[in-house]
């Protein structure tokens, strides 16, 4: 086959385009984080998940150890059931606890895992029993105001 300069340039162009796509996929995107084949699933039930969304990170001691896979509503117990996909390289005791935290004042919400002291380790399909719901700002303010209001008249009477 006859080779021309056009072929060379087209080759350079196509390879360059594919390299750019690879850069976008690997360097910019997150193609190299936990995928379904290399992880195990754990469920946790929360009374209130606040603004937690699927794909939010699961962190332990600040290190990302997995992601939130799905969020469903349990219609019998009226709680949110969150499925976590954890990286296989990280193992946690069975009595680990999960809580919903916020990164920064306005940041996204994530799940924090605290390791427990159990001998047995979490396996695929296990359920985390110790959970703590997200803080809802309105409820906190409501409680604060209620406490203040209850304090007010009592303080006056003492005088």
């Amino acid at each position: 086959m006859k080779r021309t300069a056009v072929d060379l340039w087209v080759g350079i162009f196509v390879v360059g385009g594919l390299v750019a796509l690879m850069v976008l996929a690997l360097k910019v995107g997150n193609a190299n984080t936990v995928s379904a084949g290399r992880g195990y699933r754990v469920t946790a039930e929360f009374e209130n998940i606040g603004g937690l969304k699927p794909k939010a990170p699961v962190k332990s001691a600040g290190v990302v150890v997995g992601r939130v896979e799905s969020i469903a509503f349990d219609n019998k117990k009226f709680v949110a059931r969150v499925t976590l996909l954890l990286d296989k390289t990280y193992e946690f005791p069975k009595d680990s606890s999960a809580e919903i935290l916020t990164s920064g004042l306005l940041g996204e919400q994530y799940i924090g895992l605290d390791g427990g002291g159990d001998e047995q380790l979490l396996k695929d399909g296990d359920r985390l029993t110790l959970t703590q719901s997200a803080m809802v700002l309105e409820k906190m303010i409501g409680r604060f105001l209620f406490n203040k209001a209850a304090e007010g008249p009592a303080a006056e009477k003492q005088e």
Binding site: F13, G16, G17, V19, A20, L24, V28
Partner: peptide, 16 residues
């Protein structure tokens, strides 16, 4: 049709 997606990918990569 083949060039355009490659050009867009190159554009994004150089933009980043």
């Amino acid at each position: 049709a083949i060039s355009m997606p490659l050009l867009a990918a190159i554009f994004s990569a150089f933009g980043v």
